[in-house]
Design a protein around this nucleic acid. Structure first.
Length: 570
DNA sequence: TGCGGCTATTG
DNA sequence: CACAATAGCCGCAG
């Protein structure tokens, strides 16, 4: 056996900035490093060996990234656990329980601060309890007591890694599950980088935009309230008399009665409904304008700017690589729902450009791939596959698009319903794939995406508490499950793409991931090269995500542009 | 204080 | 206005 780490081998890593680092290779090689030597040695190993670093969760990745180490390959146990077990909950205790075949609902409770728990300290050096669960004290932080504990923690991580590999390769009909685990781990590492790097913001421009909605920055809370009252008045002045006292525009019930006073009756006061009533009374227009200003004031105003944009003019939020139903990336701080009006404030730094690229019609292309429908796959060969589908169905492009989207969302009414029957006849395999998923989900059966992520239906039924009755809840589960198979696989494709871009575009940084869109920040001189890399990465992602057979049959496209300002996109 | 309802924004 | 998400404010229950 060699006394060196081997290229590409799994090396479990436990890190603590005060204690140091412990490394355990899958062939038995170990290394213990004090706090001063840890970062340089890890950086050196990354260069000379390039292992697949195995760690428990994102904080370890974040520690490396903060030390300016950005590994090429990793394995994030929490992230892989979420693929295997579904949902969002993870952590060493659950990772370990799953690997040991223990019931996660009997997970031992986290240690409390009460005095009586001190009795447990007797066996604090033993990470595995007699019942097989991981010790809560270890999970809570005993693992970072010293280098010996760190070493043990890394060993346990390596055990968990082996169990996860075994579990992934044992999944029936999911040959890409291990590849999914690697790209999803890379995405989690990317999340740590996104959190550190942030998104470049032109703060002066952002303040100009905000001011255009709600005026200049108020000096104090009193002025802020005064400004809000002034905005309220612009709506309330449309009412006759002085009886506008006590009307709260933020209260939908009050808004309804306000509208009733001018002779307008509505079930709810959503903007799209009021939009059609603009001509009825000038107060509608005033109210809709008030809503936009209120939105900026409360969610995307000066407070948002101060809270989430650093002194270095970077917008930062918390990133998750697989939150929610089917494993899409999520972000806080408005990074995923920034209003279009604020996008002119997202500007590359001096001497830099953005490479902005989005995957075209990703979900129907994904449907063609995961279902194996040859007719739908043929349509993906065109850059605008909806046009091809429209020709096949004998309908307009708009109707074809609505029908395909409706099929993936589970729509049963409206204009898409008629075209849906033609979809069934033309793309029976794809449609059957969707109805099978919907049927399984309605019955409360768990699903697994193409890449192997478990979509739990047992837990999902309770999410839709607003829908009354068992039948509508089952139907909601069906729509949820049907869509999760497509949206989830699309998320896996996107993260594979992002991971390839991250690996190939070493001199640039991904600064935003937006479901089907990437924003890369690069020095101006290398913009063209990076744009080529981003575009070419789509084809590499297709092969990595699906294997050569599917990648040859289904075509994926990206629209890539170089720009200085996000809003310069077409 | 926590939670569901309503509303807004985005893909 | 179907699928997904974050986030604010309001009313209401505890």
């Amino acid at each position: 056996m060699s006394d060196e780490f081997q290229p590409g081998e799994a090396v479990a890593l436990a890190l603590d900035s005060a204690v140091g680092a412990a490394l355990v290779g899958e062939h038995g090689q170990t290394l213990a490093l004090g706090p001063d030597r840890a970062a340089p040695m890890i950086a050196d190993l990354e260069r000379s060996v390039g292992p697949r670093w195995v760690w428990w969760s994102k904080p370890t990745a974040a520690t490396l990234v903060a030390a300016d180490i950005r590994p090429a390959r990793c394995w994030d146990l929490d992230t892989v656990h979420r693929i295997l077990a579904g949902g969002w909950r993870a952590g060493p205790g659950r990772v370990w329980a799953l690997g040991s075949g223990l019931d996660p609902s009997d997970l031992p409770a986290a240690p409390t601060d009460d005095l009586f728990s001190a009795a447990d300290t007797a066996d604090s050096d033993e990470p595995i309890r007699s019942d097989g669960y991981l010790s809560p004290m270890w999970i809570d932080g005993a693992w970072r007591a010293d280098l010996d504990h760190l070493h043990r923690w890394a060993e346990l991580g390596l055990d968990a890694y082996r169990w996860q590999i075994e579990a992934l390769t044992g999944l029936d009909d999911r040959p890409h599950a291990a590849a999914t685990a690697r790209s999803e781990s890379a995405a989690e590492l990317l999340c740590a980088e996104l959190e550190l790097d942030g998104l470049p913001v032109d703060v002066a421009e952002a303040e100009r935009i905000i001011a255009s909605f709600i005026g200049p920055r108020p000096a104090d809370a009193a002025e802020e309230r005064h400004r809000a009252a002034e905005r309220d008045h612009l709506v309330l002045e449309h009412l006759d008399g002085a009886s506008d006292q006590g009307i709260d525009l933020r209260n939908p019930g009050n808004v309804k009665s306000l509208l009733r006073r001018v002779g307008i009756e509505v079930d709810d006061t959503r903007a799209w409904r009021l939009e059609r009533l603009r001509g009825e009374h000038p107060i509608i227009d005033a109210l809709l304008r008030w809503r936009r200003a209120e939105r900026i004031a409360t969610t995307f105003g000066y407070r948002w700017l101060d809270q989430h944009v650093g002194v270095d003019h970077r917008l930062r939020g918390t990133w998750s690589s697989s939150d929610g139903a089917a494993g899409r990336m999520t972000a806080t701080a408005g990074l995923h729902n920034l209003p279009a009006e604020l996008r002119p404030a997202i500007v590359a730094e001096p001497g830099h450009v953005f490479i902005r690229a989005d995957l075209g019609q990703i979900e129907p292309r994904i449907l063609a791939a995961v279902s194996g429908d040859a007719a739908l796959a043929a349509a993906t060969q065109e850059s605008d596959m909806y046009a091809t589908v429209a020709t096949e169905l004998g309908v307009t492009r708009d109707i074809a698009k609505v029908a395909v989207l409706g099929a993936m969302y589970g729509q049963t009414t409206g204009h898409g319903a008629a075209a849906l029957r033609r979809l069934d006849a033309t793309y029976p395999i794809a449609m059957r794939y969707l109805t099978d998923a919907a049927h399984d989900a309605e019955g409360g059966h768990d699903l697994r995406t193409r890449g192997g992520r478990l979509v739990r239906m047992s837990a999902a039924g309770d999410l839709n508490g607003d829908e009354r009755g068992a039948r509508s809840r089952a139907a909601a589960r069906g729509r949820y499950g049907r869509n999760a198979m497509v949206q989830g696989a699309a998320a896996e494709f996107f993260k594979t793409w992002a991971a390839v871009v991250r690996a190939r575009a070493a001199d640039a940084n991904i600064v935003l991931c937006l479901h089907d869109e990437l924003l890369v920040h690069a020095r101006h001189e290398i913009g063209d090269d990076m744009a080529s890399i981003v575009t070419d990465a789509v084809q590499e992602a297709a092969y990595r995500w699906s294997g050569s057979d599917t990648a040859d049959a289904v075509h994926f496209v990206a629209d890539t542009t170089i720009l200085r300002r996000w809003s310069d996109a077409k």
